[in-house]
């Protein structure tokens, strides 16, 4: 089946689309010509539609429908669309125009005080903020305002890293687990580590027994570090060996 564009030669597309409306000639004081041209001129605002009576055109169209509509339905539909457009435009033009307010537009003043008036107080507040940095108060309980130093005796971070490295050597590779595998929270892991700790000084190899994976080793060590930070676990070095014990051990 041919497309609609194939039915009309190139360059012969009407202003109303692909099909020319029937030759309905309009004659009046404001305009004389075909319906198709009237439609085009109205769209281009070249004809005053208020001067063109539409009722006779509608009557002529109805007569055309009665007499020859069966000849070309496409042309009849195009004419209907053109008439509908003209009627809508004219109806709109006939509506009473909104009154134009001759009063000058009233400008709403921005709320006072204006933002630029805050410049000086912003400067003073900024200075107060900086001055406040020079004064220290006891931190509020629960608020990590300051990073308080914690006691790890003479043990260095690299020596702790060596302990982790040794723990990882004992660990078995992780098995591939499906996504969404539940894992202990750090606080749960910390409780587990605390349960393993005693007041006796022991190496990490003595504390962590049994089989464990690399992930479990890392998780175990993170919990241990957090417990050291909270002074719940003590750490010391003796003869190049690092020992751990529950907090409070001297």
């Amino acid at each position: 089946m041919s497309s609609r564009t194939d039915l009309i030669p190139a360059g012969e597309i009407s202003p109303l689309g692909l099909f020319e409306p029937p030759e309905l000639v309009v004659e009046c004081e404001a305009y004389t010509g075909t319906l198709s041209t009237l439609f085009l001129l109205v769209k281009q605002h070249k004809v005053d539609l208020l001067g063109v009576p539409l009722a006779p055109i509608c009557e002529a169209y109805l007569l055309y429908l009665i007499q020859r509509a069966g000849d070309d339905l496409e042309a009849a539909a195009t004419a209907l669309a053109a008439l509908a457009y003209l009627l809508e435009r004219k109806s709109f033009l006939l509506l009473p125009a909104p009154e134009i307010d001759d009063e000058p537009e009233v400008w709403e003043d921005p709320p006072e005080p204006y933002v630029h008036e805050f410049a000086e107080v912003i400067h003073q507040l900024s200075r107060r903020w900086d001055e406040r940095d020079e004064v220290f108060f006891r931190p509020q309980s629960g608020a990590a305002q300051y990073e308080l130093p914690f006691e790890i005796r003479e043990v260095s971070s690299s020596q702790l890293a060596f302990v982790l490295e040794r723990l990882l050597k004992r660990a078995k590779p992780d098995l591939i687990q499906p996504l969404g595998r539940p894992r202990r929270s750090l606080s749960e892991q910390m409780e587990l580590v605390m349960d393993s700790m005693t007041e006796d000084w022991r190496t990490l190899d003595q504390v962590v027994v049994g089989e464990f994976t690399r992930s479990e080793a890392v998780w175990w060590f993170l919990a241990l570090l957090e417990l050291i930070r909270l002074s719940k676990v003590c750490v010391k070095i003796e003869e190049d060996e690092i020992f751990f014990a529950a907090g409070g051990t001297v």
Partner: peptide
């Protein structure tokens, strides 16, 4: 103590001043 320094941006100071006053 190694305090955590948190600066207030100009826009935050502006909003804060407007709220305060």
């Amino acid at each position: 103590l190694k305090p955590q320094k948190k600066k207030l941006s100009q826009s935050m100071l502006e909003v804060l001043a407007i709220v305060a006053y």
